[in-house]
Amino acid sequence: MSPVDFSVLAKGDYPQLIAQGLVTMLELALLAWLLAVLVGTVLALVRMTTSRLAQSAVAAWVEYHQNVPMLVQILLWYFGIATLLPPGVQLWINRHAGEFVFATIAVGLAMSAYISEDLRGGIRSIPKSQLEAARALGLTYLQSFRKVVLPQAVRIALPTLVNHTVLLFKNTSLAMAIGVVELTYVTRDIESQSFKTVEVYLFTTVVYLGISLLLMTGGSFLERRLAVPGR
């Protein structure tokens, strides 16, 4: 085996490719995360209503997204659901990075199920008396929820929310299966061209580990900052 030589990554158009891969991966992760948090919060709120139909619908959503593999969900969106859309929409999407769009939607919606469960767990752990005290002061249900219940629920759910954020970030690598030019796709591409397997893989490994570590320490930092002062 030839000695490890990282300079190969700086040759030709590899740096550009790697940069593209990095940027795409980060864009995909951020957009999917925003979608997951938005939808997840709405779902958690909907689940708290008294409507049995609403609760069953959210439960079904959560069960589906947690029991079907992420890769299969991406394939279903890109190869399956895409074909159900009206031809005009399909054409438009294909011209505007269709693979990226569907990967974002797939990962975002899948993780929304986990986020909604995390929030639901946090909300359930807040004693009813907190809500009662807020209502007794004259706050509306929504105000009580926003100012008293949710802030406490999020603090409790924070560790699992951070875990699932890391999971979402790792799941972006699956977008390579439908041709999204993110970091893993680029890695495989360069490896097959240059045969410098160790160098490329090590680089990508360090990037993924670095960002995962960053997310986890960021989470711990946030937990400490938000912690309520006590005795």
Partner: peptide, 15 residues
Amino acid sequence: VYVMRGLPLIMVIFW
């Protein structure tokens, strides 16, 4: 343990 928690499964497969 930390490496497996931080790396996507697909990269582990490649390795």
